Computed example of a mutant assay.
Amino acid sequence: MTEQLIVFVASFAANWFSALSGGGAGLIQFPMLIFMGLPFAVALATHKVATVALGLGATLRHFKHNQLEFRFSAIILLAGVPGVILGASVILAIPPQFALLSLGVLTLGLGLYSVFKPQLGMTYTPQNQSGSALIVGMLGLFIIGFLNGSITSGTGLFLTIWLIRYFGLDYQRAVAYTLVLCGLVWNGTGALVLGYLGHIAWGWMPALLAGSILGGYLGSHVAIKKGNVWIKRAFEVVTILIGLKLIFW
């Protein structure tokens, strides 16, 4: 019971912050599973399954707000899901140390970039959603999907900033797309692949799922109510913390 309570509290906190900032549940949840004794591959697969519940909780809240466009959602899924499948298929055979260090540097850079760009993500100015510019954008989505499938700590933040910087979304819309499409569909795809290739610690799953759904719903509620400024600050805090954690892991 004590272990289940620890897992629930950690999962709730991780997914509340993730739903508010547009990614980063792995900052707490993934290393927590490793610290509690799970091997890397088992912790990775277990965390990936639990993040699907984050997507479910966020979806329940964001669908009430109705910010997602069908065409753009289809673009994100079409470009990203193949990358997720490829990334999840190869990660268990790759030593994680170098990849985690590289990801940490990039994630820290995202946070600092947002800090020094005060107007980034404050307004909704859609762009690059047709022609050759869309092809480049979809390539970026594929690469981010590969990272999402292979390295699970904080890659939703890459999708959030790509939707803002390249496609012109504001923070609130970008976070909604990230949590619903990345959280539910991308992570669901990765969970299926990792579950098939590896092992999942099902004994801890009830506490993880409960914390993920509740944290995802309540974090999304706060994000919708507070708006872009709060989301931007949460994004910056989470990216900087994740970057430092990965660099000094």
Rank of each mutant, 00 (worst) to 15 (best):
Q127Y: 04
Q127N: 06
Q127A: 08
N128S: 09
N128M: 09
N128E: 08
Q129E: 13
Q129P: 15
Q129H: 15
S130D: 15
S130R: 14
G131M: 01
S132W: 08
A133G: 11
L134V: 13
I135P: 00
I135M: 03
I135L: 00
I135F: 08
V136D: 11
V136G: 01
G137K: 10
M138V: 06
M138N: 01
L139Q: 01
L139A: 12
G140C: 07
L141Y: 07
L141G: 07
L141H: 05
F142M: 00
F142K: 00
F142C: 00
I143N: 08
I143K: 12
L147W: 10
L147P: 05
L147K: 07
N148L: 04
N148E: 13
N148Q: 12
G149M: 09
I151M: 01
I151P: 01
I151A: 03
I151F: 09
T152F: 13
T152W: 09
T152E: 02
S153I: 11
T155I: 05
G156N: 03
L157N: 13
F158T: 13
F158W: 14
L159Y: 10
L159C: 10
L159T: 11
W162F: 15
W162S: 14
I164N: 12
R165S: 14
Y166R: 08
F167C: 08
G168V: 08
G168C: 11
L169A: 10
L169D: 07
D170G: 10
D170H: 02
D170C: 01
D170A: 09
Y171H: 12
Y171I: 14
Y171V: 12
Y171F: 13
Y171A: 05
Q172P: 03
Q172I: 06
R173V: 14
R173E: 06
A174D: 05
A176P: 05
Y177L: 04
Y177W: 12
Y177V: 07
Y177T: 14
L179W: 02
L179G: 05
L179I: 03
C182A: 12
C182L: 10
C182P: 06
L184P: 13
L184R: 07
L184C: 08
L184Y: 08
L184M: 05
V185N: 01
W186L: 15
W186S: 15
W186K: 10
N187R: 13
N187S: 13
N187D: 12
G188P: 02
T189F: 03
G190S: 05
A191D: 01
A191N: 09
L192A: 10
V193A: 15
V193C: 10
L194N: 12
L194E: 02
L194K: 10
Y196S: 01
Y196V: 08
L197W: 11
L197T: 13
G198E: 00
G198C: 03
G198D: 06
H199K: 06
H199I: 03
I200W: 03
I200H: 04
I200K: 06
A201H: 14
A201T: 02
G203Q: 01
G203S: 00
G203M: 08
G203N: 13
W204D: 07
W204I: 15
M205R: 02
P206Q: 00
